[in-house]
Amino acid sequence: MEPLASSRRGFVNFLLGSGFGAMAVWMLYPVLRYLIPPKSGEATIASVPVPWKPAEIKANSGRIFKFGSQPGILVKTPAGDLRAFAATCTHLNCTVQYREEKQDIWCACHNGIYDLNGKNVSGPPPRPLEPYKVNVKGDQIVVSKGA
């Protein structure tokens, strides 16, 4: 009768073990889901007016503006063109800035450099900055996605 007894013991142990195992999963699942933050309810923004008038911005300069919750950069080239890009560096997410003396867009974090078309020309950035469309309507500059 020994084998029967031990197989019974084995069966009970199996039930106990798998029961606790299932309970662990059952408790862990909500915790793991809890740790993943919910998607933000913020609507994706298609265009924003920037808070400056075209005349205020001097040539060869750049400014950061709010594009929804993200920073954008508005650049006035030395020739006087207005251009806008997402200001988030494509390397590791830092915010870029305009360098007047070198006339380029620069990321201070890892020395990434973009030209005034937003193209990555030097350093580690793997992709160009996302370009935005710039419309000047009278006194207002409106920047929108999808250039």
């Binding site: 950061i64 709010k66 920073p71 950069i73 200001a87 830092c94 915010t95 870029v96 800035q97 201070a108």
Partner: peptide, 9 residues
């Protein structure tokens, strides 16, 4: 969040 990364970071 709306300032560029400072030089020398």
């Amino acid at each position: 969040p709306f300032a560029p990364a400072p030089a020398g970071i």
